[in-house]
Design a protein around this nucleic acid. Structure first.
Lengths: 200, 200
DNA sequence: GAGACGCTTCGGCCCGCGCCGCAGCGTCGC
DNA sequence: GCGACGCTGCGGCGCGGGCCGAAGCGTCTC
């Protein structure tokens, strides 16, 4: 009789959820995008909407991502910093796989990029930007999020950022508790647009 | 056409390797045992020898474990600290899964135990014990491992540890480079027996 | 209201892969 | 040398689960 009869280690379920190629693509997309609606995730993963929905349900059930219903969209995001760290740890193992510094490029860069978006924008940078914008009255807190002031709008134009795309829809900016910083940072279209702008 | 056509994130393969229940049991066993022959792993996982062999081959191929042929046995062990960390990170995510402190017991204790064996015994404690035993001439270095001196054997009796089981077979104690400490620590039956003893 | 749109649920198909038993190879014991 | 033993490689079986299309439900637009 086996010493460990039929108990499956806890981490097996989590790893299996991550291990499916399609779900892995989804998680990778969420890691860079910080939060996305189901349809966009489906496209990013290259599967049909129904398939994506099933996968997302599983990821939610395993506690890897969380949902937030907003209008007729459902926004998914990586659940917390622990999940991000686990993905990072797995990536670290995966990269040095066949050793050598050769193929460490493409996939590793995407991880780096993910960390940039995920940790930096969400971390110090995001917190500072948010505080700065609030302090200079370019952004004001409204009921469920933030709104640009007239000064903020002109500022956007000054730095050469076309606000049209960033401001489409309501709730173009809203707070999101960052786990590493334990303070609010910015999320939403405006934050994404700002990041893209800073990158260039 | 999908934005990310068919690229499967690097970490997916690794996660999939870990995600299979049987392989997960194997890894859990390796995490506590530090290094085991194939047959024992097969028994611990509750599968036939051939099945275990295939799984182990896959784990080796993915760089999660390494093999060392010794006589007619093949000893497997977790490849490096990065892999251990990844497993730990996954476990962390897995434990707080359904939240609540309820079922955090059984599986979490096994993780704790694994960490105790893997990190503590293999880390500071292991290094110190080894140095202490060598310094007090209870253990001496031999060709490929360590051997108990007569003084060491009587000491074992003094602390109430029956040496019979611990000393069965040759190579009951041998060095193993620990990654976190970068110094040799002890492995083998003797080390395991000592740990169990300290636990009680 | 009616229609469009986003997402989920349900049935059903089918491929992948985990499992075993048996055979083959190397190693240790006598 | 011969047998026992440990491990791996190879067919073949069977189930789990990933995929899609169609239908159903809720939300936004006009």
């Amino acid at each position: 009789m086996p010493r460990t009869p039929h108990v499956e280690p806890r981490f097996a379920r989590v790893a299996a959820s991550i291990g499916d190629p399609t779900r892995a693509r989804m998680l990778a997309a969420l890691l860079t995008g910080t939060h996305l609606p189901a349809g966009e995730i489906a496209r990013a993963a290259g599967v049909g909407a129904s398939t994506a929905s099933e996968h997302l349900a599983k990821l939610v059930h395993e506690g890897l991502v969380t949902v937030e219903a907003r209008g007729r969209h459902r926004y998914y995001r990586v659940a917390d910093a622990d999940v991000a760290r686990a993905l990072e740890a797995l990536s670290l193992v995966a990269e040095r796989g066949a050793a050598g510094g050769k193929w460490l490029h493409e996939p590793y860069r995407s991880l780096k990029h993910a960390r940039t978006c995920y940790r930096h924008l969400a971390g110090e940078l995001g917190v500072r930007v948010l505080e700065s914008l609030l302090g200079r009255k370019r952004l004001v807190a409204i009921e469920r999020g933030y709104a640009l002031t007239p000064a903020g709008r002109s500022w956007l134009g000054e730095i050469g950022l076309n606000g049209a795309a960033a401001l489409r829809g309501e709730r173009y900016a809203y707070p999101c508790l960052d786990w590493s910083e334990r303070r609010d940072h910015m999320a939403g279209r405006l934050a994404t647009a700002l990041l893209d702008h800073f990158m260039a």
